[in-house]
Design a protein around this nucleic acid. Structure first.
Length: 95
DNA sequence: GGCGTGATTGTTCGG
DNA sequence: CCGAACAATCACGCC
């Protein structure tokens, strides 16, 4: 099932690990990186109120092929985190 | 062997 | 400064 949105208000940002590898970014993050300047450039009138909403709308508006670069980076970033987590695990184990 | 959980990531915007 | 919608994530630990 979904991560029970009820669990609690997200963005709790609580630390629990010594070196906290901080997982990785998300496709949205990479996509947003390119959209923030694009969408906002095409919608200089819309503010977070709209942009934020619009951003997400068109994010999905793209096709798997469009998200390709975003998903690709997402996976790439994940590997990034994977390395830190690996070390984090090592440090955690061998300590 | 399958499940749920939490933590996190980045943008925009404003008071 | 931080949070809040917007979305994805997905590794982690556990019985």
């Amino acid at each position: 099932m979904a991560p029970t949105k009820d669990t609690k208000k997200r963005t709790q940002r609580r630390k629990k690990d010594p070196n906290a590898p901080k997982r990785a970014l998300s496709a949205y993050m990479f996509f947003a990186n390119e959209n923030r300047d694009i969408v906002r450039s095409e919608n200089p009138d819309v503010t977070f109120g709209q942009i934020g909403r619009i951003l997400g709308e068109r994010w999905k508006a793209l096709n798997a092929e469009d998200k390709e670069p975003y998903e690709a980076k997402a996976a790439a970033d994940k590997k990034r985190y994977e390395s830190e987590k690996e070390l984090y695990m090592a440090t955690h184990a061998t300590e």
